[in-house]
Design a protein around this nucleic acid. Structure first.
Lengths: 397, 397
DNA sequence: GTGTCGGCCGTCTGCCGACAA
DNA sequence: TTGTCGGCAGACGGCCGACAC
């Protein structure tokens, strides 16, 4: 299994994997809700969330007999030294690598002097389409039926004076590989089809009905294509290398060691496999945790990705605020909000969310201030308590 | 990626992976030099060797900034509570899972009262053959040419009164899947061929010229087949899940935690990817480390696997005895012997070996005794020194 | 003894418009 | 507008002995 990678800051230690992959395409494959924190910015890292990612990819719960790491707080303020986008060469699965460095106590105090950093940088491309493959699309019997609006928006215009109108398309995938397709406009009624070259792509990527393909037409008139596989049943890899217990211990011990020595550590973030982002821009975290008051009974809405790769909002009500794991991770804001969902299909949505994931419908700014995102006092070392909130307000249940 | 597994002791926590895979086939795929320690026996676990396995599978050296684990000795005496054989469902790569429990100080003292345990149990099967696939074997143009002696030894006899003689073979792979082949004896000159069914197998397992197939005919008249892929270039998986640094830290921290609490931990051993076995039967370790005197200049021989999956011996001379990593792993017997090899192709063989891997051509038993494998004195706690050897003898270089 | 090839079918791939949802 | 199908032509899969090393 080799990797394609791209650094916002290509570093010499990237080794042979220094090909730069397309950021727009990566984000299109990652989904509309995924954004990476800005390079050099301050972020909050949640070991709990990281642990959940490993649990979901190894398909194994965290065992109780994993040692405690008292030196590792539930949230770790870090500087983001490096962010690189990657794709698994075998599966084309997208993921990001981040190098984090926990802030020293002095740096944490200096935080209040810094301007607010709002993370999101590269977003979903404009000229793109995403189609879920049908049985006919993936059958060896024929080609790929291109939705009309999609073809007209993202493919170069055809010469309709030809009979039939046709052209050759060349698209690059995440690894920079070129794929050639015959694009033809034919049939009765007329429709756009990809014929020659399509089946090679389908078999090479091992696509099946239900998977999706993404085509992007960027400003430089380049065509890109990516894939998103259906259902994440279990990609899994307990993998014959390391037990899932050791993996859990590994991520915790690595973060704990980095926290005590203020040294860098490296993590992987897999947006398609991960239940929730666990590296949050500092500004986003501070804004919701310190400047938004929530209480039981409050209504909120939250964004979700649809099967068609667009966004929709679900409504819910806050039913409690408490630690998810009071023993191992006391005073953590990770998934500290218990919620109920409005719709009957709500059983599929998680019963706990984090403050920065939701959008309360009524908010009471705690500090009436013209700089709502800026912190008003030095950051407390160790984050064992939170300014402006009494303990009682944090443990409602 | 799902897994097939087999426990010598099927445990309830095996979950859904309780299919039992064939031990003979596993060993045939693992190679003639691989043996697993006996269930329930005492073994010596080497974190260094485990670390090297992770390094070779992630294709990344151990970084210097990994924390030290003072509570983790270079060798850890454990009881082997569970050994299960597995195969990766995607690649058919074989590996073993072991559950180890470090011995308490008291148990280590009691070691001298126990009878010697010599590990090796299941060995290479007798009726089997292994053939490296040719271009013709893997081409879509034809079938599989079976070497004559191999066909006569491991396939059921054909009815040579038929014209041509032919039969249907059914063989099971490591996962228990059945594969059917038409076995026919035809051509001029006559030869054994597998025709119908062969190409399905080749494409399903993604075999290419240079890979090997193994057929086994066991005592119960069952046919099994396995595969061994060519060159291990880099299977690799830094893998979008956990950084290789975290993996290294994970295995060390897991072992350190188990050592301090005398609790169980789980490791994976991948014989095809691993440079050297890192879980050694206690008796084998004690025999070579405490009852064999080696010195610089001594001649020895060592077993290697050939490309045809048989064994050959290479000769060499001991050129030094010293710690491989005196800072991180002082007083370790792991790869403590520096050697030179006789043959000119010796550049490919490792410059360091462990005592239990080699066979000195002249040995001086340290304690003339009718029980050469049994320890003569209580085991020193922590293994920071070794009975009968002065420090000077351990640091020759 | 066995790796590769030319010859020869037969099946399946893959392009087409028809048709219906 | 687009998913699936029947029809059809050509490519490739796959079984055979010939031949050479």
């Amino acid at each position: 299994m080799r990797l394609s990678s791209c650094g916002f800051t290509p570093e010499p230690d990237d080794g042979e994997n220094s090909k730069c992959l397309n950021s727009e395409l990566w984000h299109a494959c990652a989904g509309p809700l995924v954004s990476l924190p800005a390079l050099g910015s301050r972020v909050v890292y949640f070991p709990q969330g990281h642990s959940e990612q490993v649990a979901s990819t190894t398909n194994k719960e965290v065992d109780a007999h994993i040692p405690n790491y008292p030196s590792l707080p539930a949230q770790l303020i870090c500087q983001l030294h490096n962010v690189t986008m990657h794709a698994d060469v075998d599966t084309d699965e997208v993921y990001a690598q981040m190098t984090l460095q926990p802030l020293s106590p002095q740096e944490q105090k200096d935080l209040c002097l810094l301007p607010a950093e709002l993370g999101t940088q590269s977003k979903q491309p404009t000229n793109y389409f995403c189609k879920t493959l049908t049985a006919s699309d993936t059958s060896t019997h024929g080609g790929f039926s291109v939705p009309r609006r999609a073809a007209e928006k993202v493919f170069p215009p055809l010469d309709y004076s030809q009979q039939p109108p046709a052209q050759e398309l060349i698209a690059r995938d995440l690894h920079g590989n070129e794929w050639k397709f015959r694009h033809i406009f034919r049939g009765q009624p007329k429709r756009h089809l990809l014929t020659t070259g399509w089946s090679v792509f389908v078999s090479a990527k091992r696509l099946v009905a239900g998977d999706s393909v993404i085509f992007i037409w960027n400003e430089n008139n380049q065509l890109f294509l990516g894939i998103r596989r259906a259902n994440r049943p279990q990609t899994i890899m307990p993998s014959s290398v390391l037990s899932s217990d050791s993996m859990h211990i590994g991520l915790l011990a690595a973060a704990a060691h980095a926290a005590t020595t203020n040294s860098r550590f490296t993590i992987f973030y897999n947006p398609r496999a991960c239940p929730a982002e666990f590296v949050i821009p500092m500004a986003k975290y501070a804004k919701t945790v310190f400047h938004t008051r929530v209480s039981v009974g409050m209504r909120f809405r939250m964004l979700f990705e649809t099967e068609e790769s667009s966004i929709r909002r679900y409504m819910g009500t806050i039913t409690g605020i408490s630690d998810l794991d009071p023993v191992r991770w006391p005073n953590s804001h990770w998934h500290s909000v218990k919620v109920g969902w409005d719709e009957s299909t709500a059983g599929e949505r998680q019963p706990r969310v984090s403050l920065w994931e939701i959008e309360p419908l009524t908010t009471f700014p705690m500090y009436p201030s013209p700089f709502p995102v800026r912190l008003k006092r030095p950051w407390p070392y160790g984050l064992s308590s939170f300014p402006g909130l009494k303990d009682g307000e944090m443990s409602i249940d």
